[in-house]
């Protein structure tokens, strides 16, 4: 797996928080994609930490798009590369959960519909972190954000966390996958696959944010791993019309343990945990049904 990575670092000297999961996802993907890559980042953490002139931290061609326009700009770059006969290049976008599932969903849908040869990577840290932790449609049930304060009335997020993977797959996209920085070999393999896909590909990578989640900066990778272990995140692929689950059915670790390590879930009750568990079981049942 290491041989799939270029030695060169293409995202370096950025001002992301210590232990930032999103920047790890970006860094690794660029090491798979390599030098001949055009990167689009919408407004969000990665653009805010990587592009403050004069500190420009991308080693490949990269630009910031308007928040809603990641996929549209990717499409424009690909169309231009086709028109100018620039071959053998990757066109990749890195957008957060808000930039993907909320404001950028229309453009993403359009790009998939066109079938443009682009790679769209959503680094999901489950809230608008760049603006200081507000709820997005990928914030999970129960989580505290600054716009879902956990009091008697609002009680934290009551979202069901949109199923972006299924939404994207429902477009009959060429390749889609879920991934996690808690399973790096799997993520690298999927980026490699996206790179070789002749059409649109989408990777949804779980990328915890120590600041927004209320965990230690050293815990980013391990908490992502635990999310998979307790079943709240699954690894799957959709390729040429077929769903595939990358993990065997197994015993889950405790959801409660997972939640209690994060201060964003500090307030959740046993009842909440039951709801979260039920959501997990429903989602897994759905994906297993799609895979069978």
């Amino acid at each position: 797996m290491l041989n799939k990575l270029e030695q060169e670092e293409y995202f370096y000297g950025h001002k992301g928080c210590g232990g930032c999961g999103g920047s790890l996802a970006v860094r690794l993907a660029l090491k798979v994609l390599g030098k001949n890559t055009f990167v689009v980042l919408p407004a969000g953490c990665m653009s805010a930490v990587g592009f403050v002139y004069p500190q420009l931290c991308f080693g490949v061609n990269a630009l910031i798009s308007p928040f809603a326009s990641t996929a549209a700009m990717l499409s424009g770059i690909r169309a231009s590369a086709n028109a100018l006969n620039i071959q053998d290049c990757n066109v990749v976008g890195f957008a957060g959960d808000g930039g993907t599932a909320d404001i950028g969903l229309q453009a993403l849908s359009g790009a998939i519909d066109r079938g443009d040869k682009i790679i769209y990577i959503c680094y999901d840290n489950e809230a608008y972190m760049n603006t200081g932790v507000q709820q997005s449609s990928l914030t999970p049930y129960g989580a505290r954000t600054t716009t879902t304060p956990p009091g008697d009335y609002i009680h934290g997020s009551i979202n069901n966390k949109k199923d972006m993977f299924a939404i994207v797959a429902a477009h009959h996209i060429k390749y889609a996958a879920t991934a996690s920085i808690g399973n790096i070999p799997d993520y690298i393999r999927k980026v490699e696959k996206a790179k070789n896909t002749n059409g649109t590909s989408y990777i949804h990578v779980a990328a915890p944010c120590p600041t927004g989640w209320g965990i230690d900066s050293s815990d980013t990778v391990s908490i992502a791993r635990e999310a998979i272990e307790c079943g709240l995140w699954y690894l799957a692929e959709y390729e040429d019309g077929v769903y595939k689950l990358n993990q065997k059915k197994h015993e889950f670790t405790s959801i409660k343990e997972y939640l209690k390590k994060q201060s964003r879930f500090k307030h959740v009750t046993d009842e909440d945990i039951e709801i979260i568990k039920k959501q997990r079981d429903q989602k897994l049942e759905f994906i297993e049904r799609m895979c069978s």
Partner: peptide, 10 residues
């Protein structure tokens, strides 16, 4: 590709 740029920065 031979002379990469970082555009539209803040």
């Amino acid at each position: 590709l031979n002379n990469p740029k970082n555009l539209f920065f803040s």
